[in-house]
């Protein structure tokens, strides 16, 4: 039964997942077990994405099914789940592109990282406040526009000035981001894609 729910989610069988969750709740099964299986389903999605069987299309669909299914479980979901690390993530100020950032958010979540997603067009002070408040292991900065490099750089500088860079890594990514960009904005690493972000984060956390 348990494996089925994970597989159903990984196979994007939306109706079956929702029906199965409702049925099991009606039978009085504890939410925590259901959550574990749904999370395992998202891990399978991540594995298939890594193997290039799945693409953004499947990430978006699976994340939506996951959201609907866990929505049926109420507060139990919010209290659940062990996380291996935490990231404050956002698209930098004056850039409203969210797709790349959202892919990273899904993949990191699948890999057990708690994602504090600040959205797009995030003012520098908001990154600083969020890092101060959430004390993440990582800060993830995304952009699609080359004109956003300077705001990315200013965000790194503001975190440096607030003493919030120490003890955590700043990762950057996005269409026009490469090693030259990393050097320019003085981030710790750049990630070519979402999977590389997850692999890098896990490596930095010492997790296999």
């Amino acid at each position: 039964m348990g494996a089925n729910l994970s597989e159903m989610l990984a196979d994007l069988q939306e109706n079956q997942v929702i029906e199965a969750v409702k049925e099991r709740l009606a039978k009085g099964e504890p939410a925590i077990g259901i959550i574990d299986e749904l999370q395992h389903g998202m891990e399978l999605v991540g594995t298939r994405y890594q193997a290039q069987e799945y693409y953004l299309s499947e990430l978006i669909m699976s994340a939506d099914i996951f959201k609907s299914a866990t929505g049926l479980l109420g507060d139990a979901f919010k209290a659940s789940g062990e996380k291996i690390g935490k990231i404050v993530l956002g698209t930098v100020f004056e850039d409203i592109h969210d797709i790349g950032k959202d892919i990273v958010s899904i993949i990191l979540s699948c890999n057990g990282i708690d994602v504090i997603d600040l959205g797009v067009n995030v003012p520098i002070e908001r990154f600083v406040e969020a890092v101060r408040q959430h004390k993440p292991d990582f800060v993830g900065l995304s952009c699609l526009l080359t004109t956003a490099y300077d705001n990315m750089k200013a965000t790194v500088e503001a975190l440096d000035a607030a003493g919030l860079h120490e003890g955590r890594k700043i990762l950057i990514g996005g269409g026009p981001v490469d090693e030259t960009t990393r050097a320019y904005v003085k981030a710790d690493a750049f990630c070519k894609n979402a999977q590389e972000a997850a692999d890098m984060a896990k490596k930095m956390l010492g997790v296999n």
Binding site: T146, P176, T180, T181, Y184
Partner: peptide
């Protein structure tokens, strides 16, 4: 020729 190269290189 990529945008990032034209902007930064």
């Amino acid at each position: 020729v990529p945008a990032e190269m034209l902007a930064l290189a």
